[in-house]
Simulated assay, not measured.
Amino acid sequence: MTAQFVLANTRLAPVPLTPEVRLHLADEAIELWERTESANGEQMPPPFWAFAWAGGQALARYVLDNPALVHGRDVLDLAAGSGLVAIAAMHAGAARVTAVEIDALAVAAIGINAEANAVAVTPLLGDVLEQEPDAEVVLAGDVFYSREMTRRMLAYLRRAAGRGARVLVGDPGRAYLPKDHLTLLAEYDVPVPQTLEDAPVKRTTVWAVNP
């Protein structure tokens, strides 16, 4: 059901800030949100996988423009959503990319989108934030949207940085962005669907996580 649901509710289109990457994206946010709530008569996670969020777009753009960051390295994309950042990392020459999600529909979308871009990405269903990181590069787009998620995500990202990984995040100005633990790398103006955000273009930043 998962792959069919993704394909039935999206269309393949270039990502605004990274047209090198095409994703299966939804045209209408509210209708798809309602469909995921009623699918199989049970509550499903929100369809974050169906949209190119600003944080992920900015991070993907940075990776594509700075391929030495990931070239030949083992990369982990956390809360990967559509798989945009993971796909960008593969285009930039990563040796291996694992894209982690807690939503089975997102895992299906990552596989479908990787195939559409002719790259190999390993989707992983599960919560890895209590595990010890071992990737050489860790990437996370738009993950500081709640206090609890920020606490857990920042702890994982700082552990990864402390073990020597290069750790980058993309953020469109979320309230819980932990700037005290980050170093600014780049800024972008990112087109986004207005049904998802408060403006059609979001000023979005890319940061390195400090150990």
Rank of each mutant, 00 (worst) to 15 (best):
A186T: 01
A161C: 09
L17T: 04
A104V: 12
A160M: 07
P14C: 08
R174S: 14
V137A: 03
L168M: 14
Y156D: 02
V192N: 11
P178S: 12
V21H: 03
A155T: 14
T205R: 15
H91L: 15
V21A: 07
L182N: 11
T10A: 13
G126P: 12
R158W: 06
R159Y: 03
D142P: 06
T204K: 08
R158Q: 15
E31F: 01
E132S: 14
T98W: 02
H24W: 15
L25M: 15
Q57K: 03
R73I: 00
F144P: 04
L17N: 11
V190I: 13
T150R: 05
D171T: 06
N66Y: 08
I87L: 10
L23E: 11
A58E: 06
L69G: 03
V21E: 04
Q57G: 05
G141V: 05
W49Y: 14
G55Q: 05
T150K: 05
Q57F: 04
Y188I: 04
I30L: 14
A175M: 12
G162K: 10
I30P: 00
A109M: 07
D127K: 05
R73P: 04
T204R: 08
N40Y: 12
V137Y: 02
P191F: 12
V63M: 01
V6N: 10
A199S: 15
A135F: 07
I102F: 03
I112C: 05
L32P: 10
L7E: 14
L184I: 02
L7Y: 05
A161L: 08
R152L: 10
V100F: 13
G173K: 07
M44V: 00
P16I: 09
L154Y: 05
R147Y: 01
V143C: 08
G126N: 10
A94V: 08
H181N: 10
E197D: 14
P193T: 09
V201S: 10
G41M: 08
T195N: 13
A39I: 11
P19F: 07
Q4D: 15
E197L: 05
Y188L: 04
V209M: 11
A92V: 04
A120W: 00
G141F: 07
D77Y: 12
P191S: 13
L59D: 05
V169R: 05
L76S: 12
R174P: 01
S146L: 01
M90T: 02
E197W: 14
V209K: 13
T36V: 15
G72L: 05
A114Y: 09
R159W: 03
P191H: 11
L12I: 10
L196F: 10
H24E: 04
